[in-house]
Design a protein around this nucleic acid. Sequence first.
RNA 1: GUGGGCGUAGCCCAGUGGUUUAAGGCGCCAGGUUGUGGCCCUGGAGACCGAGGGUUCGAAUCCCUCCGUCCACCCCA
Length: 417
Amino acid sequence: MFKAPRGTADTLPANQPYWRFVEDKATAICNLYGYKRLDTPAFEDYNLFARTVGEGTDIVTKEMYTFEDRSGNVMALRPEGTASVCRAYLEHGMHNLPQPVKLYYLAAIFRYERPQAGRYRQHHQFGCEAIGDADPAVDAEVIDLVWQFYRSLGLKELTLHLNSIGCRVCRPAYLEALKHYYSSALNSLCPDCRNRFEKNPLRLLDCKEPACQAAADAAPATTRSLCQECGRHHDRLQKYLLRLDINFKFNHRLVRGLDYYTRTVFEIQTREAGAQTALGGGGRYDNLIEDLGGKPTPAVGFGTGIERIIQNLITQKSPVPPVARPVVFIAFAGDPARDAAFSLASDLRRSGISAVATLSSRSLKAQLKQADASGARHTVIVGEEELARGIVTLRDMGTSQQTTIPTSDLAARLSKT
RNA sequence: GUGGGCGUAGCCCAGUGGUUUAAGGCGCCAGGUUGUGGCCCUGGAGACCGAGGGUUCGAAUCCCUCCGUCCACCCCA
């Protein structure tokens, strides 16, 4: 028997209400904030991701689905959303539009990981990008958008973590200071951290090893080494967040795992859902567009995981809108009426009334049972007697009240309910 | 990639001192009402007990390997 590939899942009808709910809220919030939808291909040139996410990152080195197509082009399934959006921005000359260009996506994301609670090989993200404006008010708006999105879903116990990791001007000096701080304690660090010390010192701060926690906690904060511009940006962003009444927790150890971030980085964390506390995150990436061959273009955005949101909704027992139910179920009494019932269902649908009918020969009892399970508010019963008189029996499934009405009045009657 | 738990019908699961028609519940189908649902009763279908190999007279049950799944690390959504 075939099974869904490891780390992937079917979204069954029973779970669709959650997906519909989350996607509808995402769409609504984007309409509210003036973000336009952009869909991009599920795979891109390998180098698009390698260059932006970072050659040395875990995502690129061991998590990307990389393959050669039949012409020998090296491609990769998208492991994140931002690079594709930036590629599309450049490809379609969106710098000619009023800036910032505000875009959102709902897309499948692929990473070859060992699955566990809240972590899959194919997951889905809702993300927004505001490209072409360096003002911290844009950072604030993006954070506000995702925060209000979570609120509209009814998510509770969320914490916004905020940090600034500087820019090309001030980060080199900070990294030197960080390495200087760590250099004396190298032997007490975990092997990963010793490796990070050489390859990506910023990630030293992110280590979860208990032995390294103390060192990371006491490490110099990025914000202490920010250049004047970055410092001012960071301060102004915080003022905007206060103005928006959004609480945040300053977290000097928040650095994020993608190389393209500059200045603002943030993450929204939740208590629920096991070890996966990150519901969403993002930040500013002022060099990314330029690195892809465009003019220097500042930008900021976020991505949030839909599976993790749904997991939270479920553990929180949040109610979600139910799926649509049929208005009417068509049953027949006795085989001679089957064809009439079949046609009646079709006629009702052509009038825009959602109708479900029994298609094969079954007892009326079985049909009523199906009608009950379908959730239909009414059941129409057509039998030989009704056929002869040009009427149908209309049963209200809630009250069990039955009436007979002329078949010709049925559509009008059902439209009213 | 590393470590641990678990794999019995669509779902939840009993059975792991070796010999069973592999039990039960939900769901499904049918009947109890030859034109009527949600409750109840009765019956039925549905499992080569994750896969392969081994030990044995005999394995769902013991051993090995693999696969899958879950949880955690790593990393992230």
